[in-house]
């Protein structure tokens, strides 16, 4: 098993603390190394974006073990997460030629059809509503944005899924998105298949009282 990146100096009142869902993503990418190498070829420089990168642990792991030459542009809506990301990248001595963090909602500031590998651990917890973006840096509610996903915990994920064709690069774009059982991932997968996507469950795990799965989305070329 590959080692988990270090994250020793982060303030988990402000940034999502790596948990079962984070570790499922690490295991997912450990298992996907061969598949992704076949898709992109060794030494390739795909554009990789993790949305809501939080502590930066998943992006760091992908830099270390999957794409040492990727062009990495990870985003988070939470300014504290953007800073934490930088700390994690530094603490793990990431030597990728380019790793940047950008503060934005989803991929709104990244040019269309530029991302080859998209990773998203969304706010998937069902909640009455998706929280508003706090106005000040000191606000204690930034962390809520990482958790509360509105109806079925799917409001933010649906926004992304509807944009997926516009976000992913045309030839090779692949997205990895994490779901909990209450998000009804089978229904989501079926809907996306009807829209012309190949959807595979790449990993599935019971974690405490949650059942988590990660789905891989790729355009159906035929």
């Amino acid at each position: 098993m590959l080692p988990t990146p270090k994250f020793s100096n982060l303030d988990f009142d402000k940034v999502y603390e790596p948990a079962e869902d984070t570790f499922l993503l690490l295991d997912c990418f450990e298992g996907q190394i061969q598949y992704l190498n076949t898709q992109f070829g060794p030494g390739s420089t795909p554009v990789i974006t993790e949305i809501g990168t939080g502590s930066g642990v998943v992006t760091t792991f992908v830099c270390q073990h999957v794409f040492p030459y990727g062009i990495v542009l990870s985003t988070d809506i939470n300014p504290h997460a953007c800073l934490a990301f930088m700390d994690t990248v530094t603490e793990n001595s990431i030597v990728n030629p380019t790793v940047d963090t950008l503060q934005m909602s989803l991929t709104s500031g990244i040019r269309p059809n530029a991302i080859d590998v998209l990773i998203f651990n969304p706010p998937y917890v069902p909640a009455e509503e998706v929280p508003q973006i706090p106005e000040s840096l000191q606000d204690s509610k930034w962390l809520d944005l990482a958790l509360s996903g509105g109806e079925d915990g799917m409001e933010v994920t649906w926004i992304l899924l509807h944009q997926l064709d516009h976000i992913l690069s045309k030839k090779v774009g692949i997205a990895y998105i994490l779901f909990c059982a209450r998000n009804k991932p089978e229904e989501v997968a079926n809907y996306m298949r009807q829209q012309g996507w190949i959807v595979d469950v790449v990993i599935h795990r019971k974690a405490g009282w949650e059942v988590l799965s990660i789905l891989r989305f790729k355009r159906n070329e035929s």
């Binding site: 809506i77 300014p79 953007c82 800073l83 930088m86 940047d100 963090t101 950008l102 503060q103 934005m104 909602s105 709104s108 500031g109 508003q132 973006i133």
Partner: peptide
């Protein structure tokens, strides 16, 4: 206008533009 501060570019929009 978007700002870059401490090496981090900020693309968050005010509510009326988001």
């Amino acid at each position: 206008v978007y700002h870059i501060k401490n090496s981090i570019p900020n693309f968050l929009l005010p509510p009326h533009l988001a």
